[in-house]
Amino acid sequence: MPSAPAATVDLVPVVTTSNPHFLRGHLWLPLVATLAASTLLMSSGGDQWLADQFYRLEGHHWALQNAWVTSHLVHKAGKWASTAAALVVIVLCTHAWRSERAAAWRWPLLYLVLAVALGTGLVSALKSVTNMDCPWDLARYGGAREYIGLFASRPHDMARGICFPAGHSSAGYAWISLYFFALMVRPAWRWRGLVVGLVAGGVFGLAQQLRGAHFLSHDLWTLATCWLVSLLLYLAVQPLLKRSRVLHNALPQGELA
């Protein structure tokens, strides 16, 4: 977590997001990759093929559904760890907005708080409206329901599904916002921030797939949702961050004490 003095942050230039290369690499290429991967997983049977392998390896039942590692360590403790990290960022953000010496951290930290909250919040909202089942609910994997695609008509007498996108992995993938946070304060660290979010979300997502709670495409769209939220919020914060740094650097040094 950041500990450098405010002056260090002030030396970092605001990234020029109007450059077409920035949007191509951060919006259009990820979007195309997501749609291509989604086609393979959801329309070409990739989801079911991978779930079949997990199901077979676990003895044709979800043996890891209630296992200590997947259910308690990764699912429950992982969620608490993500929540604790968010609370730490909130405390740091509150301090930055109360202290002139930490003023340069205000918008970056506020961005991080909002990106994590909005990423996980949007995934949760989507789960309530997309109406898709978890693998463990399907007859193919010992459940009672037939698979209904995302855009297929669902029988009126079938209970609602609340498994798409994947909620738990959003507690990890929301931290890909660290990539954009690093762009604001120390661009050389941006890949480390991205790795943190990808590894956390990947571990959470894999554990849930091993439990039979999600298909891979569920986690793919969670990642895409968190990335899009992080990117759009980053673009929105840029002018505010630039104006804040101009004002901050214009103040006499004595007023920053």
Rank of each mutant, 00 (worst) to 15 (best):
M1S: 12
S3P: 00
P5G: 05
V9Q: 08
S18T: 15
N19I: 01
F22A: 08
L23F: 10
R24K: 11
R24S: 12
G25R: 12
H26N: 13
H26Q: 13
L29M: 05
P30I: 01
A36D: 03
A37W: 12
S43H: 12
S44A: 14
D47C: 14
Q48A: 13
A51H: 06
D52A: 07
Y55M: 04
R56P: 00
L57N: 07
H61S: 12
W62S: 02
L64M: 13
A67T: 00
S71L: 04
W80G: 01
A81S: 09
A81L: 10
A81Q: 01
T83S: 13
A86I: 08
V88C: 04
H95D: 09
S99V: 01
W107S: 04
L109T: 08
L110C: 14
Y111V: 03
L118C: 10
G121D: 08
S124V: 01
D133H: 14
C134D: 00
L138G: 05
Y141R: 09
G143P: 07
A144C: 00
A144W: 01
A144Y: 02
Y147N: 08
S153N: 12
R154G: 12
R154F: 09
H156I: 03
H156M: 10
D157L: 09
D157W: 10
D157V: 02
M158E: 11
A159K: 11
C163K: 03
C163Q: 05
G167L: 12
H168G: 11
A174L: 11
L178H: 06
F181S: 13
M184G: 08
R186A: 11
P187E: 07
W189E: 15
R190T: 04
W191T: 14
R192F: 12
V196Y: 06
G197F: 01
A200N: 03
G202Q: 09
V203N: 06
V203T: 08
G205C: 05
G212F: 04
H214T: 04
L216P: 15
D219V: 10
W221E: 05
L223S: 06
C226W: 09
L231D: 04
L231E: 06
L235C: 11
L235H: 05
V237F: 15
Q238Y: 01
K242M: 08
R243F: 00
R245V: 00
H248R: 15
N249D: 05
A250E: 10
